[in-house]
Amino acid sequence: MHRLRVATSILGLVAVWQLIVLLKWVPDTYFPSPLATLQALWAGLLSGELSKALAQTASRALVGCIAATVVGIGLALLTARYRRLRQAFDPVAEFLRPLPPAALVPMAIFFLGLGWKLHGFILMFACLWPVYLNASSALKAVASVQLRTADSFGYGGWDRVLRVQLPAALPEIFIGIRIAASIALIATVVTEMLAGRDGLGFVLNEAAMTLRIPDMFAALLLTMLSGLVLNAVVLAVRRRAVGWHVGMTASNRG
C-alpha cells in the first residue's frame, strides 16, 4: 500500500514534468522532457562519463563519511572519558561548525592543491562536527541510573565509557552519522563544482556552462540517487548496530 502510494506520487511528478514541457511553459532548451533526460542519462552511463563521475562522487562521499564517523566518535569517546578535554573541545567545535566548508575551498587550494587532499580535508571538516557534537552530547546524556549501575558493578574509566556509555549513546550517535552522510554528499559536490576536475559536481557545472541541459539533468538525477543510496546504507548499518533500539521503540509504541 505504501509502495503503491509512493509510486503514484512519483509518477505524478514525472507527469507534471512532462506536462510543463508539452505546454512549453518554459523554454525546452532549459527544461528537457523526462525522456530526453533519461536518454542523456543512459548515454552518459554507457559512454562512461556519468558512470565514472558517479563512482567518484559516491566513493568520495562514502569514504569521507566513514572517516569522519571514526574520527568523530573516537574524539567523543576521549572527551567523554576526560571531562576537561570536553570542556576544552566542545566550544571550539560549536564555533567551527557554522563555518561553510565551501568557504574553506579557495584558501585550502593553496595548501593542499586540487587533488584528493583537498577533498579529504573539506569532507572531514564538513562531516566531523555533526558526528562529534551528536556523539559528545549523547555520551553526556546517558541516564545516571546506567552510570550508577556501571559504578556499582565495578565498571570504571574506559570500561564504563566503552561498555555502558557507548552502547547507550549509539542510537543517538547515528542521528549525527545520518546528518554527516548527507553533508558528505553536499561537500563532495560543492568541492567538485568549485575546484574539481571530475565527479558529478564537475559534470553538473560543465554541462550547465556548455548548455548541455539534458546532461545536467541526468547528473542532477544521479546526485539525488547517490543521496538516497547513501542514506539507505547508513540506515542498514544502523539496523545492524542498534537493532535492539529499533525493537525497543517499536515495542514501546505497540
Partner: peptide, 21 residues
C-alpha cells in the same frame, strides 16, 4: 571511598538500570 566489591545494588528505576542492548 568508591563502590567496593561485595556490595550489590538493585535500583528503583530497574527498567533503565538494565542495559537495553
Amino acid at each position: 571511598q568508591a563502590p567496593p566489591p561485595g556490595i550489590g545494588v538493585v535500583f528503583q528505576d530497574y527498567s533503565r538500570s538494565l542495559l537495553p542492548w
